[in-house]
């Protein structure tokens, strides 16, 4: 049975409606033709939707505080992983090394995609 801390239930249908409206906005984003706006809408809305689901559907804020800390620590460690590995993956050359396979893949892909992607 649910714990007493979950006795208060928010208006789930209204939250679902907000989530669906946000989904529609993120799908319409590419129609603006503005790349930065499209990416901002898509990922900004994804963060908002994830927050709404975690808070209202998963009831993270009704759990003991350590549950939220646990999730935040896990996410922070993923960011540490990204920060540690990304420079070697995203850059294809450094002071004394170069990733020729990646450079060739970018070049071949850019030629195949045409001038718009170069």
């Amino acid at each position: 049975m649910s714990s007493p801390s979950h006795a208060h239930h928010p208006a789930y249908v209204k939250i679902w409606a907000v989530l669906v409206v946000l989904l529609i906005v993120s799908v319409l984003g590419p129609l603006t033709g503005i790349r930065w706006l499209m990416l901002l809408l898509a990922f900004g809305i994804a963060v908002v939707k994830a927050y709404l689901v975690a808070k209202n559907f998963m009831h993270v804020n009704s759990e003991p505080r350590w549950v939220a800390y646990l999730l935040i620590i896990c996410l922070a460690l993923v960011i540490v992983l990204f920060a540690g590995v990304a420079p070697d993956v995203m850059k294809h050359r450094g002071l004394s090394w170069e990733n020729r396979a990646a450079q060739q893949a970018v070049e071949a892909g850019s030629h195949a995609a045409g001038p718009a992607h170069e």
């Binding site: 995203m90 970018v106 995609a113 992607h117």
Partner: peptide, 15 residues
């Protein structure tokens, strides 16, 4: 995280 870092390093994946 692996996908994002590769995607940022490979703009040709957009196609």
């Amino acid at each position: 995280a692996s996908y994002v870092m590769h995607r940022l390093g490979h703009p040709e994946w957009a196609a």
